[in-house]
């Protein structure tokens, strides 16, 4: 089968993304994820099934099946802007590693056309999938949420061991590997918790950057639209001062930290 004919399921393509990977990028959001992070701002991304959201009376279908060719047609539209900015295509989700055939075909087709590739991933996938995909990805941005596996399980529905193993695997294969940490008050926003992640990251081969992404509550409406409960207690986004303190903790490990993507 031609790469362009490979099918997959996405729920959005977002153009002119300037905060996720280098330059101006188009983000393809793939549907389906193994994690159920309580703070997830894209809860409509979690189920693989096509869903409907009731946006206070307006019914919207979330998810559509597309071919790699169809995605590339949209991605190609900003090719000129990628070239000028060093940008390209980013796969996000959901977890794009849950659709390895589709993700691999997208990456390979993009490279075929000279388009830079990146992924935002939890790395919750088999080692085999990681080995298949990483050679076709120019920049890997991986989330690490917590070093304590039990707490990780409580807040995301998955233990962290496999992901941390995959992190080491990616580090061995990728030349451009960035660790990103969502900073969630009540979950992982103490200096100790951030330090533990940063120390782990600093020992990964080639990892130089760690991005701290402060929690925001922009996704809470979507839980209501999906008829779901938002299970995080009412928390405030972390203050700028606190983020600066955490940034200092990251930088102390020798990594180059930054706030925001």
């Amino acid at each position: 089968m031609e790469l362009t004919e490979v099918k997959g399921r996405i729920f959005d393509i977002q153009r002119f993304s300037v905060h996720d990977g280098p330059g101006i990028r188009s983000i393809v959001f793939l549907k389906g994820c193994r994690l159920r992070c309580r703070w997830c701002c894209n809860p409509e991304s979690q189920e693989y099934d096509i869903q409907t959201m009731n946006k206070d009376g307006v019914i919207e279908t979330v998810g559509r099946d597309v071919t790699v060719g169809e995605v590339m047609e949209e991605v190609e539209k900003d090719r000129i802007f990628y070239r000028r900015s060093g940008g390209g295509m980013t796969l996000s989700g959901g977890e794009s590693m849950c659709q390895p055939d589709f993700a691999e075909a997208l990456f390979m087709e993009a490279h075929e056309r000279g388009i830079n590739t990146a992924i935002e991933t939890t790395a919750c996938a088999s080692a085999e999938t990681v080995r298949r995909l990483v050679p076709h990805i120019d920049t890997v941005m991986m989330d690490i949420k917590h070093m304590n596996s039990e707490k990780h399980y409580t807040y995301t529905g998955q233990h962290n061991e496999k992901m941390l193993e995959n992190a080491k695997l990616i580090a061995d294969m990728s030349d451009n590997f960035i660790i990103r940490v969502p900073v969630i008050p009540t979950f992982n926003d103490t200096e100790e918790e951030i330090r533990a992640i940063a120390q782990f990251a600093s020992r990964l081969r080639g990892v130089e950057q760690l991005h701290l992404l402060p929690y925001h509550a922009f996704g809470t409406d979507k839980y209501r639209w999906l008829g779901r409960e938002y299970t995080l207690p009412e928390i405030e986004p972390p203050s700028n001062e606190h983020m600066e303190r955490l940034l200092a903790v990251v930088n102390a490990t020798g990594l180059h930290g930054q706030i925001g993507g």
């Binding site: 002119f16 300037v18 330059g23 101006i24 900003d78 000129i80 802007f81 070239r83 000028r84 900015s85």
Partner: peptide, 17 residues
């Protein structure tokens, strides 16, 4: 700086066309 870079790329991209 990243915002400025993207902005310049946007102008450049429009002008390329």
């Amino acid at each position: 700086r990243a915002g400025l870079e993207s902005f310049v790329a946007l102008v450049r991209g429009y002008f390329d066309q």
